[in-house]
Each structure stands twice: as structure tokens, then as C-alpha cells.
Design a protein around this nucleic acid. Sequence first.
RNA 1: GCGAGAGUGGUGGAAUUGGUAUACACGCUAGUCUUAGGAACUAGUGCUUCGGCUUAAGGGUUCGAGUCCCUUCUCUCGCACCA
Length: 838
Amino acid sequence: MSKYPFNEIEKKWQKYWEENKTFRTIEDESVPEEKRKYVLDMFPYPSGAGLHVGHPEGYTATDIYSRYLRMNGYNVLHPMGFDAFGLPAENYAIKTGTHPYTTTKKNMENFTRQLKSLGFSYDWDREIATCDPEYYHWTQWIFKKLFEKGLAYEASTPINWCPSCKTGLANEEVKEGHCERCGTKVEKKNIRQWILKITAYADRLLEDLDTLDWPESVKTMQRNWIGKSEGAAVFFKLENFDDTLEVYTTRCDTLFGATYMVIAPEHPLVSKLTTEEQKAAVEKYLEDTKHKSDLERTDLAKDKTGVFSGSYAINPVNGERIPIWIADYVLISYGTGAIMAVPAHDDRDWEFAKKFGLPIIEVLKSDVDVQTQAWTEDGIHVNSQWLDGLNKEDAINKMISWLEEHKCGHKAVNYKLRDWIFSRQRYWGEPIPLVHCPKCGTVAVPDEELPLTLPEVTKYEPSGTGESPLVNVPEWVDTKCPVCGAAAKRETNTMPQWAGSCWYYLRYIDPKNKDRFIDPEKEKYWMPVDLYVGGTEHAVLHLLYSRFWHKVLYDLGLVSTKEPFQRLVNQGMITSFAYQKKNKSLVPVDKVSEVAPGKFVETETGEEVTQVTAKMSKSLKNVINPDDFIRDYGADSVRMYEMFMGPLTESKPWATAGFMGVYRFLDRVWRIVTEKNIEDIGLDKELDKLMNKTIKKVSQDTETLNFNTAISQMMVFVNELNRLEIVPKKTLEILALLMSPYTPHIAEEMWALLGHEPSISKETWPVWDEKKCLDDEVEIVVQINGKLRSRIMMPHNADKKDVLEAVRNDEKTRQWTEGKTIVKEIVVPNKLVNIVVK
RNA sequence: GCGAGAGUGGUGGAAUUGGUAUACACGCUAGUCUUAGGAACUAGUGCUUCGGCUUAAGGGUUCGAGUCCCUUCUCUCGCACCA
């Protein structure tokens, strides 16, 4: 019994690669530009739990691709590092007093060990960690650039506050009203914040998406998040006041149907517009809404609430008085926080008008009675004086011209994207390099004082009052103004975790540079990233933020490309099996038995359960730890199985039985190499054909990241080799080369056993002979009326006439066509013949 | 509600421009062998009333549809009063 000694082989080659720095990458100028590739993984947060099975999936994919490219003559930059600032280490520090760096360092060491145990071909000399002062020196330096450019500003606005994490959050970090990280309900809190003006780049962030080779779903998500809408600003004169009320609308053509206006409860004109009679009602309403969370406000969407302010505006097109209401279905954060309501043609306005008895005027020809329901489809304008008879587009254009001519409005663009709340009231992040001077205002820390390092603290607990633990370190906070030298205080907020990941891909290019954040020559050598692989969870977080920073750096002439990541691929999630009862509740894996193939019952009750796929979770006992499988079956098996499971981009369940199939495959390969008769002989024609076909399929599928089908072709090839008494050496050499990106350890060992010098990763990728891939004889399928009736063998590229001749002589075909009229004969070369008969 | 994607054997999944549906792997059945191991090898394995029928369901285009078009259903993900 020959179990292949994966443990020994893998350790041996990992040591070899490390000692020989096999995968060190240098900027070799002799490599032409089109042969330089930057293949990047989303770097991990080094959590205490270590790698989960999702990590090796994307990392193996890029590793295979990188190794494949190198063997095809490319110079490949393939680095790895750690997104090392983050809350778990800090929360652990609060509980135990352990410095977050201690925890993080330990976790990084564990991650490094695990990553190395998988045999990834990273250039470890380029490793970075965002919490390293050498690294965040330049994060701070880039922040200063943003600050100097006026893209960072301080404001005290109501922001999303997580009471559990005790810090402010960016809009992007709030999911359905809850903290993305911990799931706690988010509150509104008014605190002083540093904010980055990402909205200044909204248009470019939107437009440049078109230039990217990214999954359409991610592009769509970013487009929706930026949420550009084109419409008009309309100014309404107010009765009894000099002010005007500005609204934003996409349908200014429906202005004749505006029967009331709504302003958000937070709108600055609320108190002014509230009349004496309405004061009590308005105050009560404001009090009520204030206590509703954002979530409640949106949850209660179906039931509209509001209160009349007592004041009126004047409709500019017809001089009508329109009542102004206050209601929380209008958000202060979008547009101007005020709307003109056209209840006949908007569901929300209609609902509100019905509830409060406001008039509904039809201005678009409707198929329904607008008094009973809103008509939200297009229609020809009616009751709109000089717009009557026009369609939507013409009416909008005409209205905008009219508004501009009469100085009561203009064309306008609006975005859903909000500026980026950038400060966090926590300890474990990059200190924001600013000083508050009573005389000079907010001043940046001079470049020569960077990095501004984190001071030691005794307590990591956030104050919870909106200040970071750094306020408790007077010797750090109290400083001198870099401009005037007067006593000043340091900014105590820190940067969010996203800051470090906004530019890490640049630092890999020049990780040890002490004088600048990146050498421009090296930057030009590698950028942009040619392939970026990672999970979909960063679709509008990291991937939007880093595009923003990159564009700022581009404007400053510090990088040469407009976009950082040319091609993005999202790996699918690796799920697991779980078992579901009739009532849809899930049963942990260890409480289920398989009573017949594919039939499962809950062991205790005997109740039948069905196998479903579900996320891995501790409670379902279906979490897979890659370390266990590496230990018991080897890294090559883990790598190959994760690629064999299915298409990279699909989510798919881990099946340990399926994993064993891949392990058995490698074991079989090992036995062929070590036990069979291997001779340096020529290949017979059929074997040569299969070998060439295999080279072709594996090459093409690796190129296009269809790793699962490349692996099945290797299996087909190995199954054939396994049948041979004497195996030609050549076939095993080719097999080792083809396998080497996928299962590099066993491939290195095979290469050595076949008498070659290491490393196989330095060898040239094999090429196939197209002529040898062709079959001399092909099977032609004979269909009668589209149904498969017979098959005949014909020479490859046989003449159409000869094929038809052979088909007519085919006995089975004759049985089906006898006594019938042949209407049509279709011949697909080398594939099939379809005879249409009557 | 809006947007994006997906439905193929008992299971994970294959199928160039529309051209043999179910490659490869798992599981299962039977046998051989044994250093009893999540071993190896051999044969079989979509359903079938043996006529045929099968790619979520129904319809359409076509000589021919898993693939293209329409309708419906189910699932996953994202956004959600965005004026």
C-alpha cells in the first residue's frame, strides 16, 4: 500500500522555495511591458480563528494563474500582506489588556504559517502589514495630501453611531440599519468627524466603471450606490417670507400637478415656516420622529406620517398656493431635503395625500382614476397648459427652459453617494496626522515627523462619548503647533480600517522605500493590477474607497493609471451542507444520519430531513478547517479540491467525500510515478493525441480561470496512463508540468523523480500540436427529423457528398427513411447529419 | 418594491458559433484482491410500462434548443420612502 508521502514532499519543497527565494520578483527591464503582470489577492484581516476555507479558494486561483503566467514567460508580481488594524484585536485588548499589536502579530504569524503551508508562490520579501509604522507612515502621508487638497474636512453632523463598537460608521458600513461588523442597531449621533469628500469624485467614479473588466454585478452595485440622477432644481417662493424653498425633482414636467410640498423634519426652514397655530403639533411631531431610528423610519414606510406647517409656497408655473408639510418620508440627506409632491403620479405622495386629504391632480394621461390609485407610468401631459400633449422627454426639456428663463429653477444632478465619514473613535488605527492650534486652526503634522505613531495607553476602552482612548494620553495629545509653536492638541480620532487597504497594492510594488510612498518608475512597471481576486463583500466598501484614493493620487501625478484594478473576479463563497426539517429549521450535521443514499433523518426523532446548502456556522457544526485537511491529506489536495469543486465565481458546498476523490487522484498519480514501469519510449498515436488534447484543454482553461474543467482533463489523462503497462516518460513530464500550477509540491517531486533539476516552476509551459489533436476518424451522428437514429464513422473533414452517401447506405438510417420523402438534408461537418422526411 | 444572478442525475458539476445532454468526480450495486485502508482493480449506474421520455413549468423561433425569445414559478445576493 503506497500512500503518497504528501507531508514529507510538501515540507521539503516549501523549504526549498523559501531558501532559494524561488518566487522573488524583480523589475526586470528586459521583460517587455505586455509580459508584466500584477496578480493580486485581497489581503486578509489576520483574525484569531486563522484561515477559513474561503481564503485558499481565491488564493489558489491567483497562485495557479501566476505560476501559469511565469511558465509562459511573464514577469509576475504576486504579493501578500495583512490588513492588520481592526476591531477584534482591540476588543480583545479591552477585555484582557493585551496590546492589540501583540495579538495581531501572533495572528499574522499564524496566518503566514498557514499560507506558506499551502505552497503559494508569493514574493514574501514584499510582505506588508498596515499596522506597521513603516507602512502607515505613508497612509498618513496620503491623508495629508487629501487634507492639503481640501478633500478632508471636519464637520459636526449627525452620523451613524454603533453603540456596541462605540464608534462612528460610514454609510457604506451600515447594512439595513445595523452595524455591518457586529449587527447592532445603528443610532444617529451628532459628533465632530473627519469626512472625506468622495462626492467630488462621484462622476468620475461612475464614468470610469465603464473602462473596467469587472463583474457586471459589482459595477451595478457601485453605480447604484453612487446613484446619479438627473433632474431639476425648482425654487418655490414662500407666502409671507422672502426666502425661497428649493426642491430637487426628476420630474419637473409634472409641476402643474404639485399640490403640496414636504420638507424633512431636520430641514433648516422648519421653525421659520411653522405658524403659531401649528406650533404645538409640529413640535410634537419633531419629538416623535427624533426618537425613531433610521430603521424604524424606513420600516414604517407603509404608514406615512406628517404634520402641516401652516405655511404656503407659490407654484411658479401657475401661482397656486401650495401647503407645506413636514414629514419624515422625506430625507434630509438626499437632494435639498424638500420635495414638491405630485400625488397623482407618485405612490408615496399619493398615499400621503389620501391620508391627509390633500388634492390629487392628474397631469399625465392615465389608464386609471388617479383618485383611486397613483399612475406612475408614462403618459401624455394633460391639465398642464403649455405642456399639454407633450411626451415626458419633451415636457421635461421645455419645463427646464421655462424655469431657467424665469429664474426659478435649473437643470440639476443629484447623487445618493454621501461623503465618507473617515474618523473612528478607537485606538487601534492610524492616528490622523493633524494638530489643532488655537491660533492657526487645524494644521498638518510635518512630513519629517511622520510616522506619527500610536502612544501606549493603559486603557483601550473607547470613552463612548465620541472620543477615542487617545484623549487620555496627555503627553501625546499636548503638543506644539508646527506653524507657530504655541501649545496645541493632537487630533485623537483614528482612521478607519479601510485607510490601509486603500493603497496597499501600491506599497507591494516598493515596500521598503523609506523616502517615498512608491518609486514612480516601479509604479509604471507594474500598475495597474491585471487581475484582482476576492470576495464580493467589498463591492462598495474597499473597492470604492480605493478607487477614490487612487484617483486623488492620479490627480496629484503620483500614480500613472486612472484606475487601480483593471480586472476583478469575485470568487464564490464556499458553503457547507446542512439539513432542513419540513418546518424549514436547520439541524446540526452531527444530529443527522443517512439511512439510504441521499436520504437523511434526524437521528433522535427519525424525522426526515433534506440536504441543503448553508453557510458554515459553529451552530450547524459544518465548519471546515483547512488546517485539518492540509495535515491529513496535504496542501495539494486542498488546493486542487477547492479548484475542482466548481466554477471559481460560483458559490458551492464543501463535500468531504468529493475531496477524497481529489486526494485519490493525487495518490494514483503518485503510484504511477513511483510504481509503474516508466520508459523513455515514443507514444502511440492515440496516446499522443490525448496528451496534446490535454495540453490544449489545460492551457486554455487555466488561461480563462476555468480550473475545474482543466482538472477533469488531467483526470482523463491520468486514467488513461493508469491503464498502461509501460508509461512513456514524456507523458509524465508533461503531466508534471500541467499539474505544477495546481499541485506544485507533488509536481516538483515528480519532476525530480523523472531526473530533472528544480524548480519545475522555472520550466516552460508545454505547447500542443494542433494537428495531433485532430481525430482521423470522426463519429457522425445521424438524426431523422432531429431525433438521434444512427451513428457512422467518417474520415475527418470528409466531403459532404461522401458523408451523405455513407448515410444513405447506413442500414439503420434506411429503416427510418424507407418509403418517406426526403425534404431536406443538413450536414454539419464532422458532427452530424439531419435528414428531414415526410 | 427595485436591481443583479441562478435553476441540468441521488450529490458537486460538464456541454465552442444553437449541432451526440449528463464529461470529470462523489455516492451506490456486483465482483476480484488484500499489508483491513476513508485502499486498489474490473464491470455497471438519468428515468422507463422498452414504444419512448428527460436540462424548474408552460409556450414560441428553428431541420435542430440546456443554450435564443415570451410567460410563470422557485432560490441566492445587493439596495430599499433616493423625490
